[in-house]
């Protein structure tokens, strides 16, 4: 059974998203299920901070020795920060997918947009 924290939002593309913080910023990563399916991550290509994307746009990718997966913008908005630690240690995505293995932070154009994402229950049913 993969770990699906109840306090996060999810997408069908196996990304997790936090609720917006005081500045309206959300943090994004890939789920435990996704990292497990992908295998040991050896490279994460992340978008550039400052760039803006529409929801579901492919904005980067995560590579293991066996395969590669797209990273999608879960919501429309601007990337405000990416996780530079992944450059030296992409394995954080496997070892700590909801913590040190986060991918990026973004400011959604619509702060309420997270409400339209999957809940932990919804996502559990998808990967169950």
């Amino acid at each position: 059974m993969s770990n699906i924290p109840a306090d996060l939002y999810y997408t069908a593309e196996h990304e997790w998203i936090t609720a917006p913080d005081g500045d309206g910023v959300v943090r994004v990563g890939i789920t435990d299920f996704a990292q497990d399916a992908l295998g040991d991550v050896v490279y994460a290509q992340l978008p550039e901070a400052g760039s803006s994307y529409s929801a579901s746009e492919a904005i980067g990718e995560v590579e293991s020795t066996k395969s590669v997966s797209d990273i999608f913008a879960p919501l429309q908005g601007e990337i405000v920060r990416v996780n530079d630690a992944l450059d030296a240690d992409p394995g954080l995505i496997n070892s700590d997918p909801y913590g040190g293995g986060w991918l990026m932070e973004m400011r959604p154009s619509d702060a309420d947009a997270v409400q339209g994402l999957l809940s932990a229950d919804d996502y559990s049913q998808q990967v169950g």
């Binding site: 295998g39 040991d40 050896v42 293991s64 020795t65 066996k66 394995g91 496997n94």
Partner: peptide, 10 residues
């Protein structure tokens, strides 16, 4: 396919 980590096995 792998036991734990394919990178560690490699």
């Amino acid at each position: 396919l792998k036991y734990q980590s394919e990178l560690a096995e490699h």
